[in-house]
Nucleic acid binder design. Structure first.
Lengths: 254, 254
DNA sequence: ATGTCTTTGTGAACGCGTGCACAAAGATGG
DNA sequence: CCATCTTTGTGCACGCGTTCACAAAGACAT
């Protein structure tokens, strides 16, 4: 296709900013969509729009990977898909275990985005003996007694924790002891892990609370704008200030 | 309880850094746990450890809210729980709708963290007529034809999208048109919304890909360390380089 | 009342990420 | 072969967030 594959071997590898790494999957998704529509090349402007970012940022991000792209033309879609996939490590197979097959764990097991892109659900693990053997998403659930063996037999290095908060740290410890070095945690707890183990956290409750903060701020500004006066102190008093101190539900498992 | 309630009315409200807002729910969770154990006060050091952050960061975060806390003693747990709750807008009730009651939507509906903390699932909405009326988590699913009416009748301002990617933008547009101004998006798509609408994105596939990147980097460093030589270029070649260009599964819905 | 000791609150320095704006690169047409 | 035009790649400046380090504040004992 296009032209000059400078093909710098990206000895750069280390030195890719974390913020850039976090955006690469976004670009990859947009590029994959283009690839499916057989679009041969794409400009930074177009791709940035598709990924919902600034075009300068996108170009800078790509510059960390190497000098792919052709001035005056843009980026070769297929080539870039491959380069990003390689950089993210998606050209190899990643066996994953999901621990905690409740509502969320089952949803994750069924989630299509897992199976694609090199992630393979190697096993589902739950502490409830009644679950053992029961198939979820076509995979039989195994009991957590066998956790260590499952990890080792399948060479698993990525674990997903979807247990209740109370069990999460214990599960985490066992995963790490068995050789897992990357953990995706859905339980609402702070996990402590030794150095060298990565933890990423997905917390539905926190996301909602952040939204609530901004929502409240919006409502406050509206109210302040309509009665003209004090910016936020007045606006916030709509439902809170009648209970001046500690009279709110202090008990909740979130 | 302790002592000096300076009680600055926090006219500060605007000017709380986004990064701080994102950590407030974390502090709140740690404080709630302490509150349940009837711990009266806590130092920034202890609380920071419980929340998994630096103590200086925590103190600076709290300083944006006002001057709660007593030097030489620490923070009054109950008081701080209330202040953070108020700041986050959790002292009021937030009705939420969940659109798309598949595996994930059902898991969200059942998730305990939603019900607590002022978030109330006002309705579950799905496009499948077969789902209509069927109860999930004790709430009957309603058909998406009635989406606008449901939003308006319940005064919903926060919507959760758990539909397939293809339907997400359309659902989003309808939510926004009906008055929703905050959206939590689980669909793997970039949503475009008008100004004034907040979108937060939770993307399981992206989190996994970020983990894979770091996992690969670890494996590469190990390999490079053991054979001594080229840092990353050699290490990466383990499974990728034999297919020099675009020979990988280019089709996938993630 | 005074001194000591603990812990907060914050000024200042630093580093990372973002966005602008432009020079260099290369394609394309004559 | 040269001119023009498009688009990349990046130097630079700016702003946000993090961390250090310390002075001020207050509790507590004597």
């Amino acid at each position: 296709m296009a032209t000059g594959r400078t093909h710098r071997p990206a000895t750069r590898s280390r030195g890719i900013p974390e913020a850039t790494v976090a955006r690469l999957p976004l670009y990859l998704r947009a590029l994959t969509a283009l690839s499916e529509r057989s679009v041969p090349t794409v400009s930074s402007e177009e791709l940035a729009a598709a990924a919902g970012v600034n075009s300068a940022k996108l170009r800078k991000d790509f510059s960390y990977l190497g000098s792919y792209g052709t001035r005056g033309v843009g980026y070769d879609v297929e080539y870039l898909v491959y380069q990003i996939s390689r950089e993210l490590g998606l050209t190899q197979d990643w066996p994953v275990v999901i621990v905690g097959i409740g509502n969320l764990g089952a949803a994750l097991a069924n989630y299509g985005g897992f199976a694609s892109r090199g992630f393979r659900v190697a096993a589902l693990i739950d502490a409830d003996p009644a679950m053992a053997g029961k198939p979820v998403a076509g995979i039989p659930v195994q009991h957590s007694d066998d956790l260590e063996k499952i990890i080792q037999d399948n060479g698993v290095s990525i674990g997903v924790i979807a247990t209740p908060a109370g069990a999460a740290q214990q599960v985490c410890d066992r995963l790490v002891a068995a050789g897992v070095t990357s953990i995706l945690n859905f339980a609402p707890t702070v996990l402590s892990v030794p150095d060298g183990v990565d933890v990423r956290k997905v917390d539905l409750s926190i996301e909602l609370q952040i939204l609530a903060f901004h929502e409240q701020r919006k409502a406050g500004e509206e109210a302040a704008a309509s009665d003209g006066g004090v910016p936020a102190a007045a606006a916030r008093s709509d439902s809170a200030d009648q209970g001046p101190d500690g009279d709110m539900p202090a008990v909740m498992p979130a």
